[in-house]
Design a protein around this nucleic acid. Structure first.
Lengths: 324, 324
DNA sequence: TTGTACGCGTTATCAA
DNA sequence: TTGATAACGCGTACAA
C-alpha cells in the first residue's frame, strides 16, 4: 500500500497523500505491527535474558546494564527466571526460542550440569552470550569477572594477614565461577605453602541457606580442627555462613574470619561489614548486551571471553590485625 | 498440514504418520513459531512491565512476584525501565504496543503528569494494571498498599512517642503514593491537633539524592525552627535525608528522627536502622500479574483497586523514648 | 505516484 | 486420514 510508504517516510509518495495518511493513522492510534514485521524478516529485535535468581542485588544491577544498552539499540528484553532450576531454565529457553528472540543472555542455574543442550543451541546458530556464570569453550562469548585471579587476591589477602587455616565454601564445579574460585584458592594456598585440608573444602550452592548449611558442616569439626577463616563463593553464602557462626555463639572475625564475592548491597551494612570482591554488575550487563548485539548484527564477531576487573573491598569481617 | 496436527496432538492423524513427523521435528530441532501464531490470533502471550527504577530492592521483589505468576500462566515478560523519565516511559509503552503485548503492568515514573495518555490506551482496550504508583479512576485496576492508612499509622506512631514537630518530604502529587502519603500525614496531624508548618512540607522525588536535597532545605531553617522528626515518602528518600543530617553533624534520632516507606533491604542494616512501612513487593507483583491476566482472559473482570496491607516496622531511627 | 501480488509460519475450514 | 486454501500485517518487487 501507499499507506506503508507514507508512514515509513519513503520518498515516492505525494506530500498531500502522506499528510492524509499520517493524520488518519495518528487519529486512529495506529501502531505498526512488529509481529508481522518479525515474521516477514525473521528478526524480532528481542533478546532473551535467563537469570538464575532475581533478588540478589547483583542481578538487578546486571539487568539495569543490559536494559540500558538494549534500549539504546532499540531491542526489547524478555526476562525469565530459572530460579536455579535447570529444568525451568531449559523451559524458559525453549519458550524464548519459540518467540524467535534474536539472541540469548544466559547466567546458568546452579543445578545446570548438562552443557550439551547449550552446544546444540549454538550449533543451530542462535547467538548466545553467557555472563557471570559461564560455560566456556563451546562457541559462545562469556562476560565474567577474573574469578581465578580475584580468588587468588582474596586468599592472599587473608594469608598476608596471617591466616593459614583457611576453608572454602565452594560452588558447583560445572559452573565457571564455582570452578575458578576454587582453583584460585588452591593455587594461592599452594604457592604460599599452606595445607588445603579436605574437610575445609565444603560444597555449597550460591544462596544464603546454602552458605548456612555448608558452614554448619565446618562447625561440626572439633574446635581445634576448625579453620580460622572462610572464603565463601558468593556474598549470600557468606551471609549464611556468618549467621551460622553467630548461631554457634562464635564471633566474626575473632573466632573466624569470613569473606565473600560480589559486593552485595548488604555487604557493607551487615555486622561485621563483609570483606568481598567488588563485581561491577552494571558494567557486566552492558558488556554482555553489547557483545550479544554485536554478535547478532555482524557475522564475524569473534567469540571471546571478556574478563572485567574486580577490586578487593576490605572491611571488618576479615579482621585487621595479624592472627596465627 | 498434517504436520501441524501431528505436533499439536490432534486426534485425526495416523499414529504412524505422527511418529514420523515428531521424530523428524525433534531431530531437526524444530521450534514452533509463536510469532506466526501471534500474527494469526492477535494474541502474543506476552506482558509488558514498565518500571520506573530497577535497582531499588522493592522493584526486583515485585518483578519476582510477577515473574512467578506469569511463568505459571505461560506468558512471557517484556521488561522495560523508564528510569523515572516519562518520555522514556511513553516510548517504552509504544514499543510494547508495537510488539502487541496482551497487557501492561505499569508503575508510573515520577515525572509523569499527563494521564490522558493512559486514558487513551485504556479506551483502545489495552488491558492495564497499575501497581505501587497508580493512576486511579481511569478504568484500570490498581494494586497498591493502603498508603493513606499506612501514612496515618506512621505519623501517629511518631506522635504517640511525643513528637509534634514533624516534617514530611513528600512525593510528586500526580502519583498516587505521593498524594496519599501526604494526605495521611496531614489527617493524622490534624486529628491530633498539631500544626502542619508549611516550611516543613518539602517536595521530593522518590530517590536517594532527592531525599538528600529535600533534607538540605529543612536544615537551612534555623535550629529552633527545625522539626524533630521527618517522614520520608520512600526509604531511599529517608536514606538521603539521613545522609544530609549526618553531613550537618547532627544525629538520628537524637537531633531528628527519620522514618520511611517500603522496608528496603538496606533499611534494617543502616545506622541507625530505619523505622519504615513494610511493603510486600513479592505479593504486590503476584497480585498485579494475576489481575492483569484475569483481565486479559475474561472480558468481565471488574476494574478494582486492591490494597495490600502493610505493617509498621519500628527500628531505632525514630527513637524509643518520649521526646518533646 | 499509486496499486497488485506474493510470502514469512501458522491453523481453521473445507475438499479429497 | 490427508491435502489445499485462505488469512493474520507487513514490505519487496514489479506493473499500471
Amino acid at each position: 500500500m501507499t499507506v506503508s510508504r507514507a508512514i515509513n517516510n519513503k520518498s515516492n509518495v505525494d506530500e498531500n497523500t502522506r499528510e492524509i495518511v499520517v493524520a488518519k493513522a495518528r487519529s486512529m492510534g495506529y501502531s505498526p505491527n512488529r509481529v508481522a514485521k518479525s515474521l516477514l524478516y525473521s528478526k524480532t529485535y528481542t533478546i532473551g535474558v535467563v537469570l538464575p535468581e532475581i533478588s540478589h542485588s547483583f542481578f538487578p544491577e546486571v539487568v539495569k546494564g543490559i536494559e540500558e544498552v538494549v534500549y539504546r539499540k532499540k531491542y526489547q528484553l524478555f526476562l525469565t527466571n530459572s530460579a536455579e532450576d535447570n529444568r525451568r531454565e531449559k523451559n524458559a529457553i525453549e519458550t524464548l526460542r519459540s518467540h524467535r528472540v534474536d539472541g540469548l543472555l544466559i547466567s546458568c542455574s546452579q543445578s545446570t550440569t548438562d552443557i550439551s543442550y547449550y552446544k546444540k543451541l549454538i550449533k543451530r546458530g542462535l547467538p548466545i552470550v553467557f555472563f557471570d556464570r559461564c560455560v566456556e569453550g563451546i562457541g559462545a562469548s562469556c562476560i565474567k569477572i577474573n574469578d581465578f585471579e580475584s580468588s587468588v587476591t582474596l586468599t592472599k589477602h587473608l594469608i598476608s594477614h596471617g591466616y593459614r587455616r583457611i576453608a572454602h565454601l565452594y560452588g558447583p564445579q560445572k559452573i565457571s565461577i564455582g570452578r575458578e574460585r576454587l582453583g584460585g584458592f588452591c593455587q594461592a594456598m599452594e604457592e604460599s605453602g599452606y595445607e588445603i585440608k579436605k574437610e575445609w573444602l565444603v560444597e555449597s550452592g550460591f544462596k544464603i541457606n546454602d552458605g548456612y548449611r555448608a558452614m554448619k558442616v565446618l562447625l561440626e569439626l572439633s574446635p581445634e580442627n576448625r579453620p580460622k577463616a572462610v572464603i565463601a563463593v558468593t556474598d549470600p553464602v557468606a551471609f549464611g555462613a556468618i549467621n551460622a557462626i553467630h548461631d554457634a555463639n562464635l564471633t566474626v572475625p575473632d573466632d573466624m574470619a569470613v569473606v565473600g564475592f560480589s559486593d552485595d548491597v548488604k555487604a557493607a551494612l551487615i555486622n561485621p561489614p563483609l570483606t568481598t570482591i567488588l563485581q561491577p554488575g552494571y558494567e557486566m550487563g552492558m558488556r554482555a548486551a553489547r557483545k550479544l548485539i554485536d554478535t547478532i548484527e555482524s557475522n564475524h564477531e569473534p567469540v571471546e571471553t571478556i574478563e572485567i576487573m574486580t577490586s578487593l573491598v576490605v572491611r571488618r569481617s576479615c579482621g585487621t590485625k595479624r592472627v596465627s
